[in-house]
Design a binder for these strands. Structure first.
Length: 509
RNA sequence: GGCCGAUUCGUCUAGCGGUUAGGACAUCGCCCUUUCACGGCGGUAACACGGGUUCGAUUCCCGUAUCGGUCACCA
């Protein structure tokens, strides 16, 4: 019998949540739900220097927007509260001191300058790696080299100190990553990492291991950038006596730049004209605004679907998945190992798929607002009709209004190329005949009826419909392209259609 | 540079010893249509390289190359 699955998403509130972080959260969430387990949100704010106001709220709002539900966390509570690491200081300290007592860690008093000097010395001596380790620690100021009385005196005097892990000199550390298989690292490659900083707060390494253990985390699903330090974490579990209940690890492939080298960054967003953050973010220090997927018009379902497929694949040919379907289909075995380039074109395609699935009513307010923002009064009813007319053509809801612009005003100019090619005697005849027919028409002004009226009128006038339709469109909208003309007329209304026809006849001749 | 990881169409990927190497985005062509889109149909396009193992390697092993990550009192 294995324990119920518990996973955590553990971001650092140092700014807006990066889209890669959203994917990590998503995979954690999918796995938790799939396994019938719990998902916790833990805020890793152990670096006071990097605190950014608003970042924590941003993270919570972003997860909520994409549809990731947190079972336990600072905002929703839970049995392992607090879920903010800055509020768990004593817990880490207790474990750190325990490690020192058990001879698995030690106090170190070296100043930053002394550390720099040490690294420089080692580099000049061509040492394989300039690290604080089993050999170099003997030359530094710590509780391993200083007399016990000295150490006590320094601590009592309030001298700043850190606690470092006493990494073994020769030991093979293995871990079985769920995605990558066995990874072996020699302990000589791991240095004596700082566990507890001089400000009394833990580093990521200690905090993450202690919390994951205390919170009963069964699976650590995180980005590949953590793989190099994973063996260190294994060592920590061992030294803390928790190796038998150590969580399983799964290191996710990274999200890479759309082109060129390196991992996806904010700079790519500026360059490529797409967002890398879920929500818009205003930097509280500089006032700089970074665009967000939400504000750019992406539907959360589309973003989720897109993100899920960046590094994972269900193994079938189904592409469109609701969150529930993703949960059902998700498995860690199907996560790809290699990094994935971020291709925003694919994201747009997913959005297109979801936009066309939306009801007209749900999209209409966007259209209404855009129209009124541009100075055209628009009822919700009209906006709904326009949405129905155009939503299948666009990738984003905000693209509907620009496509529908010609509905809102009589053309003040006409596309010259179309005029030259299509505005001939037949066209004039057709426009005139249709105008006359419309003048006496008393039926309902609906697309189907209009279509009949036009066909009938043209037949009587002996004009082939196909030859003049583009000219009719030109007369009514000023352009040669656009959505269904009959539907367009229906929305414009009989009055306005007549006005436009008359104007065109005056101005195009 | 040391360590760790990765490598299938331009991109996301399927493949888990024998396949005409499949799908999607993008791209190109055709069809549909009153036009532009949407949509439908079809095309171009990939196993990084070199050694093994094997009757047989995209698939397993070892090198090489390339790419990525990481080497802080940051996470």
């Amino acid at each position: 019998m294995s324990n119920p699955v518990r996973v955590r998403f553990a971001p650092s509130p140092t700014g807006p949540l990066h889209i890669g972080g959203v994917r990590t959260a998503l995979y954690n969430y999918l796995f938790a739900r799939k396994m019938g387990g719990k998902m916790l949100l833990r805020i890793e704010d152990t670096d006071q220097n990097r605190f950014v106001p608003g970042a924590e709220d941003y993270i919570i709002e972003a997860l909520k927007w994409v549809g990731i539900q947190i079972d336990e966390g600072q905002s929703v509570g839970g049995p392992d509260a607090p879920y903010r690491q800055s509020e768990r200081k004593e817990i880490y300290q207790k474990e750190a001191f325990r490690l020192v007592d058990e001879g698995k860690a030690y106090y170190a008093f070296d100043t930053p300058e002394e550390l720099d000097a040490m690294r420089q010395r080692l580099e000049e001596a061509n040492a394989p790696a300039a690290q604080y380790n089993a050999i170099t620690r003997l030359q530094m100021k710590n509780s391993l080299t200083l007399p016990a009385a000295d150490v006590k005196a320094r601590i009592d005097a309030g001298d700043p100190y850190v606690i470092r892990l006493k990494t073994p000199r020769k030991e093979e550390v293995r871990l079985n990553d769920l995605i990558r298989g066995w990874v072996n690292v020699h302990s000589s490659a791991i240095d004596d990492k700082v566990l507890l900083k001089s400000d009394g707060l833990p580093t990521y390494h200690l905090a993450n291991v202690v919390d994951d253990h205390l919170m009963g985390i069964t699976h650590v699903i995180r980005g590949e950038e953590w793989l190099p330090s994973a063996p260190l974490h294994v060592l920590l579990y061992r030294y803390l006596g928790w190796e038998s209940t150590m969580p399983q690890f799964a290191h996710l492939p990274l999200l890479l730049k759309p082109e060129g080298n390196g991992k996806l960054s904010k700079r790519d967003a500026d360059l490529g004209g797409f967002p890398v953050f879920p929500l818009e973010w205003t930097d509280p220090f500089t006032g700089t605004v970074a665009r967000g997927f939400r504000e750019d018009g992406y539907l959360p379902q589309a973003l989720v679907n897109f993100l899920a497929f960046l590094g994972w694949n269900p193994g079938t040919e189904q592409e469109l998945f609701t969150m529930d379907e993703l949960i059902e289909a998700f498995s860690i075995e199907n996560i790809h190992k290699g990094g994935a380039r971020f291709d925003v074109e694919k994201a747009k395609w997913f959005n297109h798929q979801y936009i066309r699935q939306q009801t007209d009513a749900s999209l209409a307010p966007v259209v209404q607002q855009a129209a009124e923002g541009a100075g055209f009064p628009c009822t919700l009813e009209k906006a709904t009709k326009i949405t129905a007319l155009l939503k299948e053509r666009v990738n984003f809801a905000h693209e509907i209004f620009p496509e529908a612009r010609t509905i809102f005003y009589s053309p003040d100019s006409y596309d010259e190329a179309v005029r030259a090619a299509k505005w001939n005697a037949d066209a004039q005849g057709a426009a005139t005949a249709f105008r006359d027919a419309l003048n006496t028409y008393e039926g309902e002004f609906m697309a189907d009826a209009i279509k009949h009226l036009l066909a009938e009128t043209l037949q009587q006038a002996g004009i082939k419909q196909g030859k003049v339709m583009q000219a009719m469109r030109l007369a009514l909208t000023g352009t040669g392209a656009g959505p269904d003309l009959m539907l367009t007329m229906e929305i414009i209304g009989r009055e306005e259609t007549l006005i436009r026809l008359n104007r065109a006849l005056e101005r195009l001749n």
